[in-house]
Design a protein around this nucleic acid. Sequence first.
DNA 1: CGTATTTGACCTTG
DNA 2: CAAGGTCAAATACG
Length: 255
Amino acid sequence: MFPGVDKAVEALLRGQESANRLKTVLGQPRTSSVPTEPLFDTVLDSFSVALSLFTNFTSSNPQPHPVARKPSMKTSHGKDGLEHYYIDDSPDPHHNDGFCWRKYGQKKIKTSSHQRCYYRCGYAKERNCNATKRVQQIQESPSVYRTTYVGKHICQVDAFLQPQDDITNCSKMIRFDKLDQTMSESVMPQLVSVEHQAITMEDEGTDQIMNQGCDNNEGLVDDGQLWAYQVPPCSPGNFIFLEDISAFDYNPFHV
DNA sequence: CGTATTTGACCTTG
DNA sequence: CAAGGTCAAATACG
């Protein structure tokens, strides 16, 4: 077959499993309290990973693909209007967000029984990149991990892309200028076509309840700005997720 | 042995 | 003063 086929199959199997679980949950009204959003996430992620692997193989310049995800839960400005953050809830705390992170701390949070992990950009020093993220488990079953991205990636993408990188390495970025049209059309529509569904996520502390929508984030966005599509906090140079990224409020790579 | 992670101490903020 | 965030020495790992 091709390099990475094992990972593609693994991703598809994971998606299949989640789809089956989703079917079971949706088929049993009694279990309607079980959050389905993480299952949707996993299904979408699996397709995205598999598609990226197939696409990489069919192109002469294979590159890893950041996991396509549903839209961000929330973005916001700081008090000075300059600080940005981006919240993403995922069943996978280590899901591929396209960046290389280095852990620099872990702390027990008073308002939660789970510890919070602190990461900064792996190129923070050499490229003076101030991007950080925090990851914390906020829900037990199924587990939901909240990742809060803070700051902007100002490191250049060539720091991330190495020819020998594979999907398991920290350098996981996609070159959209290398992607064919099929890829863009096959992945992106999924990100906005899933019906809106709100779930209530309980957190033991003061974390606000998040209304998770795939194409609608009302109530989540401080400044009336919406993440209409999946836009992880990365889109450096010609490695963009959407053609007109400037339409969005937050683009960590455009300083 | 170099690099990444862990973890207690320290700093900042409200 | 408490809580969250960061630092940096110790430790683990490849």
